[in-house]
């Protein structure tokens, strides 16, 4: 993804606390488990089992999951569009084994 910056994504992930619900590569604590582990996420075909795993879809999903996938159990998170892109870049950069 052009211009998206995984390092800034990591900062945003810390600021909003995604790790309270997800195990995320590169984040040692916390490692909540109410959401699925995001290790190996880049190799996954679908987001939440239903959406195609593409950068634009992921960017929309991490920012406002209920609007992207009605009925999902993942809440909306306070991220700007740019931050959401950075976060998606981080998940793609760290998520492949």
């Amino acid at each position: 993804m052009p211009q998206a910056d995984p390092a800034r994504g990591a900062q945003a992930i810390e600021r909003v606390g995604c790790a309270a619900c997800h195990q995320i590569p590169g984040i040692a604590w916390p490692q909540g488990a109410s959401g699925p582990s995001l290790a190996g996420f880049a190799d996954q075909g679908l987001i939440a089992g239903r959406l195609p795993n593409r950068p634009d879809v992921l960017t929309a999903f991490v920012r406002n999951a209920p609007a992207t996938l009605p009925g999902t159990t993942m809440p909306a998170m306070p991220l700007t569009k740019e931050e959401a892109r950075d976060v998606a870049a981080y998940l793609y950069a760290t998520g492949s084994r």
């Binding site: 810390e14 600021r15 606390g17 790790a19 619900c21 909540g32 488990a33």
Partner: peptide
């Protein structure tokens, strides 16, 4: 935990 949106919702949920 730091107190933010994710940790607050995450704490309450599980």
């Amino acid at each position: 935990l730091p107190n933010n949106r994710g940790t607050l919702i995450g704490w309450i949920g599980d």
